[in-house]
Amino acid sequence: MENPVIDLKGLTKCYGSLKAVDDLNLKVEKGEIFGLLGPNGAGKTTTILMMLGLTEPTSGKALVCGIDATTNPILVKRKVGYMPDSVGFYENMTALENLVYTGKLNGIPGNEAHRRSLDLLDLVGLGDSANKRTSVFSRGMKQRLGLAEVLIKRPEVIILDEPTLGIDPAGVKEFLDLIRQLSREQGLTVLLSSHHLHQVQMVCDRVGIFAAGKMQMEGNIHKLSQALFAEDSYSVSITVREPLPASWEYSDELRDIRDVRGLRISENLVQIACASDVTPDIVRFFVAKGLDVMGVHKREFGLDEIYQKYFDNNLIENNAHEKSRSIFKRYIHKK
C-alpha cells in the first residue's frame, strides 16, 4: 500500500471519559471496498465523521486522499461522497430538485447538474419518481436517492454509513451490486459500515471488525476465518431420518475419523466440526452404519461465526443479558 486513499493514524476520540474511538490505524487502498463491521455503538459513525472533518479527533490524524480532514475539510468533502445512516431530504422539494441543489453546492453549473441528476435517478431506479416530493418517499427510496446524491459530485471515495438499512432484500442485492460495479469500473474507493454480516461478506474486499472503539481484526474474510478457526474451520451438518439418542453408540467411532474435532447431536441433526474437508468420509460412515441420510450441509465459517466469536463473549453484552434476566425475573415474581 504505497498511497492509501484513506489513512487513519492513531485516531482517538473521547467524549468525556468515554473513549468512542481508541487509537485506530487503518489504511484503505484505491479501488478497494472496505467493510467496517461492528455492533451498535462501536464507534463506526464517529470514525466516519472524523474522516469528513465533521468532528474533531481528540488525537491522531485522518488523511483522505492525502489531505488532513480535520484542518482541511472542504477539500476532502470535494472528493468524498458521504451517505449518513439516516438520510433526510428537503421534503418540500422534489427528488430532482434535491439532487440539483447538491450538485450546485459542489460547483456544478445548473444545466449540467440537471442532466447528471436525471441520469443518476435513472441509474438508482428512481427515474419515474424524479418529480415527486421526497416527503412521499419510502425509506428505501430515500436510501437510493442518497446514493444518487453521493455520486453526483463524481467522488473519488464514497463512504456509506449503514447503506442497506431499510431496503428490501432484492433491493439490497441490487444496491450492493451497483456499489461493486462502480468500484470496479470507475476505480472508486468505498468504505461502508454495517452490522449486516452477509451483506458485507457479499461485497467487501476487506473487512475490519470494530468493537469498543478498537479495530479487533482486519483482512479478507478467508484470512479472518483461518486466523480465528485455525483448528476447525469447516462444519458439516448431517440430517438423518430417525432421531438419534443423546448417547449414540457410534459417536466415538465417528470422532476417530481423521480431522474430526467434535460433534453435537440433537434429535436427527448431527453437527460435526472438522479441520479439513472430510465430508465424503463422514457420509460414507453414515451410509455404512445403515442410517438414512436426508441431507448434508457443509459450510466454511463465515462472518457470522467470526462476529459471534468476538461479540458474544463481550463483557458488556453479558452484563446486559444478566440485567435483563434479573428484570425479567422480578417482573415474573411480582405477577
Binding site: 470535494r78 460547483g107 441509474l123 431506479g125 459530485k153 444496491f175 462502480l182 469500473e185 470507475q186
Partner: peptide, 15 residues
C-alpha cells in the same frame, strides 16, 4: 436499478 451506462458517461469528467 438500471445499467451503469448513465453513470459511466457521467464519470468520464471529474467534478
Amino acid at each position: 436499478m438500471k445499467s451503469l451506462a448513465a453513470f459511466s458517461k457521467g464519470t468520464s469528467i471529474k467534478s
